[in-house]
């Protein structure tokens, strides 16, 4: 793993990218603002319509940043944990548990705060289920294949429950349910809890990051280089699951960010997790802010779920980079 000046430049560039995305998120929308409007009203104490708009957009943009950062972090960790480039934050069914709980809350007609709590509880429950089942009854040895199979099967189970709930839901609830399932930031509030989980998650991941460089090359190999893998993998599972739970609670199951962002950074040539992890967080956060801006302004006044935008924008970018990459040729 090399430390080169390009690593620093990448982090600096991503910071600029995040700032620009934030500005775009603040300026563009059903009522566009100019940069001067923004500067004048942002620091103006008197309340005005523009100021209200800025405040709403700022909250939503922050929420998008935190969600995108959480998803990218969870995706990177999950890919190392399962050692599969196809792994994403949702592969172990954690979002499935959150979705079932959230849909039930929508079905009953609970208020937003209760929906949030319910979704987080559902995610934690799904996470616990994966932990217990993948650990086995008497076997305490770590086995990533069993973890993956357990998670995939549980995810399928959650999917069935989701379809079941949708089938029996009244028409007036289906719309908000679908938005939640596709991933949507329109009900987002200031992402206090998400921000705390993102920062602590990134902090603890960075503590592990040096060992992740070895673990990603295989468990036996990592052990032969003195990495205590059992311990490390449980920590990874907990970190990745918590980040996923926080992201899903914030905005439903937004696809592609968690899968694609870590690969984007790798395709630039960054393979060291000490750089890869923070770079993924910045890139995921910035991208989701942009995608959310598009989702609320493309067909304004109609807002589309941001999950559609992340898919439509993410897929072609990813395919283009994949075509150019030597590693996946």
């Amino acid at each position: 793993m090399l430390k080169t000046h390009s690593s620093y430049w990448l982090i600096a560039t991503l910071f600029v990218f995040v700032i620009i995305s934030l500005l775009i998120a603040l300026l563009i929308g059903s009522s566009p603002l100019s940069l001067t409007d923004l500067l004048v009203h942002f620091f103006n104490e008197q309340s005005s319509t523009q100021q209200l708009i800025i405040q709403l957009r700022l909250e939503r943009a922050l929420s998008a940043f935190v969600t995108g950062g959480l998803l990218a972090l969870a995706g990177t960790l999950m890919q190392v944990l399962i050692r599969n480039p196809l792994a994403d934050p949702y592969i172990l069914g954690i979002s499935g548990g959150a979705s079932v709980a959230a849909l039930l809350a929508i079905l009953i007609g609970l208020p937003l705060i209760a929906l949030t709590i319910s979704a987080f509880a559902g995610a934690l429950f799904a996470m616990l289920l994966v932990f217990l089942l993948s650990r086995g009854v008497k076997n305490t040895h770590w086995n990533p294949t069993r973890l993956l199979l357990t998670g995939v099967i549980l995810a399928a189970g959650w999917g069935a429950v989701i379809s079941f709930i949708l089938t029996f839901s009244p028409n007036d609830r289906i719309h908000s349910m679908l938005f939640w399932l596709m991933g949507d930031l329109s009900y987002s509030h200031f992402p206090g809890m998400g921000l705390i989980i993102l920062l602590t998650g990134l902090f603890f991941s960075l503590l592990l990051s040096h060992s992740l460089n070895v673990l990603i090359r295989g468990e036996q190999f990592a052990r032969s280089l003195g990495v205590v893998t059992d311990n490390l993998q449980w920590k990874l599972l907990i970190l990745a699951s918590l980040c996923t739970a926080a992201a899903v609670t914030q905005a439903g199951s937004i696809g592609f960010i968690g899968l694609v962002v870590p690969h984007l950074i790798r395709l630039i040539g960054i393979h060291d997790h000490r750089i890869l992890l923070p770079a993924s967080v910045l890139c995921g956060g910035g991208l989701l802010m942009l995608a959310d801006t598009l989702s609320r302004s493309l067909f304004s006044p109609v807002q589309i779920p941001v999950g559609i935008v992340t898919a439509l924008v993410g897929i072609p970018i990813f395919l283009y980079l994949l075509q150019r990459s030597e590693a996946y040729r």
């Binding site: 793993m1 090399l2 430390k3 890919q79 050692r83 599969n84 480039p85 503590l207 990051s209 040096h210 460089n213 070895v214 990603i216 090359r217 295989g218 190999f221 280089l225 003195g226 990495v227 790798r266 395709l267 393979h271 060291d272 000490r274 990459s325 030597e326 590693a327 996946y328």
Partner: peptide
Amino acid sequence: FQDVFPSTVLETALIGRHPHLKAWQWP
């Protein structure tokens, strides 16, 4: 070897230095 993720030859060989490096030390 399990080579699922991209890495250059030099980076891969440098992983051998892992036990000699501290957590935030680069080769």
